[in-house]
Amino acid sequence: MADDLTPAAAAAKAALADVTPEPGSKKLDPILIANGVRRTFGGITAVDVDHTEVQRGSITALIGPNGAGKTTFFNLLTGFDKPDAGTWSFEGRSMEGLAAHKAARLGMIRTFQLTKSLTKMSVIENMKLGATGQVGEQWWKGLFPFMWKQQEAEIEQRADELLARFKLDHMRDEYAGTLSGGQRKLLEMSRALMARPKMVMLDEPMAGVNPALKQSLNQHIKGLRDEGMTVLFVEHDMDMVHDISDWVVVMAEGCIIAEGTPDQISNNPAVIDAYLGSHQGKSLLEDL
């Protein structure tokens, strides 16, 4: 297997090789650092993360039983929800209290568990929306096509390239609503790439995707790492976690209970305990 590793994958593996497999462990070159992030919903603590770091250029999986607070943690990090307490920084810049669109502009682009492809717009329009810094997105400039036509053409070209890479080019002019569930996941991911992110946050990229497409989705996610992006993803599909992630963070009841490489995690008793408490325990044990 080792021979197949791309340079980026090998680098990520090497960087994480000496990290202690324990919750809140220090990474060599963290892109994202979170401290004491807490969020409660009417008395129930949904997220209570003491400390965690995400290694730059790695693929990190965030797993845990249902209700562990993974998606809420995602929402907090990306500015879609406000925490009761806590700080976190992205590339050394504090993200506390930052609105979602500003987090995205810093290069942290997320996708959603239930895909948010804009079903009543065409696939190519969806893609073009993703591009940042568009001149024509200011209304007084939008009025004069000559001010944005050239940029629009460049964006369209890049969108077409991405669509071809994600094998959506044949659907280019269809309404996004006509895509299958898996194609929507692909569209959302490629739309996120239009924004040229530094870090991609994928919320359950495999949910509702048929097995045939899963393999190619896996390859696409690995491709992101090869292009220098950092990937953090929430997933239930343990095959996939094991297959593509360099590092795994396990959450249960809002807290991080374990961290480590996929192999270390599959032998971690705390993780097995957490999962045995829920009905997913058995399947996790079988998977790992």
Binding site: F80, A100, T119, M121, E125, K128, G136, E137
Partner: peptide, 19 residues
Amino acid sequence: SPWGRVLKAIREDEDAVRS
């Protein structure tokens, strides 16, 4: 214009546009 595209996207799903 791209401005109009953003508006139509907001009509459909604000969060997607925000992200």
